[in-house]
């Protein structure tokens, strides 16, 4: 049974379409320790977002179970905060109000009004977005929106932070900036993080372990790689380190040799 903090046990997901079901995930087994940063990488359509949604509780499992801190996951909740791929900020609320909504919802009984206000500002400062607290999402850039999305998730004090390709829609420079911010925050707070990505460098730079998924249908975990790089990691120094190069090579090899995406495209 799940001795780890987050335990994904024999998870399978089958979508029921007209008569024929399509099996997306099959027999996924993964143990994540508290404070660990785990990336899940694979070709598009391999079911990595499905796996994240199962952990979030947004999708039900067909077989198996997800157990977080000795409790089985059955529905979504703020203990598994999600940073969505397209930020999902509510456009009619200001930056502050977006975070405050989450803070009010999670800490309504536990914190006073003033404490919730301070906690909202604290989390905005953590992602360097306090200066734009009164702006609406439409008035800030894509990278800033994603920062606010991260602040909203952090403000829930989740047991595990789920990042669904959080930087996928950003340009390379903004992306690097945000990756650095996420590393800093992870070092400071020690969150347990599960991140979906399709960027090999991002996975190697940020993760303690990289989980590589085989191609669907019936995708499962093909290989798990531990990144042997000491923290804190600095983008410029790490780049040439043998451990970085080796890890990068192993992931690329897996993606292009053992589970090439061409097969998916041809199917």
């Amino acid at each position: 049974m799940g001795k780890s903090y987050l335990s994904i046990e024999n998870v399978g997901v089958t979508f029921q379409g007209r008569g024929l079901g399509s099996e997306v995930l099959k027999g996924v087994e993964l143990q994540v320790e508290k404070g660990e940063f785990v990336s899940i990488i694979g070709h598009s359509g391999c079911g990595k977002s499905t796996l994240l949604n199962v952990v979030a509780g947004l999708l039900p499992v067909t077989t198996g179970a997800v157990i977080l801190d000795r409790v089985a996951v059955e529905s979504p909740g703020p203990d598994r905060a999600v940073v969505f791929q397209n930020h999902s900020l509510l456009p009619w609320l200001s930056v502050y109000e977006n975070v405050r909504l989450a803070v009010d919802q999670v800490f309504r009984g536990a914190k006073s009004r003033a404490e919730r206000h301070a906690w909202t500002l604290h989390n905005l400062q953590l992602v360097q977005m306090a200066h734009a607290k009164d702006k609406r999402p439409s008035e800030i850039s894509g990278g800033m929106k994603q920062r606010v999305g991260i602040a909203r998730a952090l403000a829930m004090e989740p047991k595990v932070l789920l990042l669904d390709e959080p930087f996928g829609a950003l340009d390379a420079l903004t992306r690097a900036n945000l990756q650095d911010s996420v590393m800093e925050i992870h070092a400071k707070l020690g969150n347990t993080v599960m991140m979906i990505t399709h960027d090999v460098d991002e996975a190697v730079l940020l993760s303690d372990r990289i989980v590589m998924m085989t191609n669907g249908p019936a995708a499962t975990i093909g290989q798990v790689l531990t990144v042997e790089l000491p923290r804190p990691r600095r983008r410029l120094e790490v780049d040439a380190a043998p451990a970085y190069v080796a890890a990068r090579r192993a992931v690329v090899e897996f993606l292009h040799e053992r589970a090439p995406g061409v097969r998916v495209a041809a199917a």
Binding site: G57, L58, P76, G77, F84, S88, L90, Q105, V106
Partner: peptide, 16 residues
Amino acid sequence: QDYRNVGRVLRLSPAG
């Protein structure tokens, strides 16, 4: 769907 998911993750009450 994204906004619905936000509501679900936050466990908003039906009225909320």
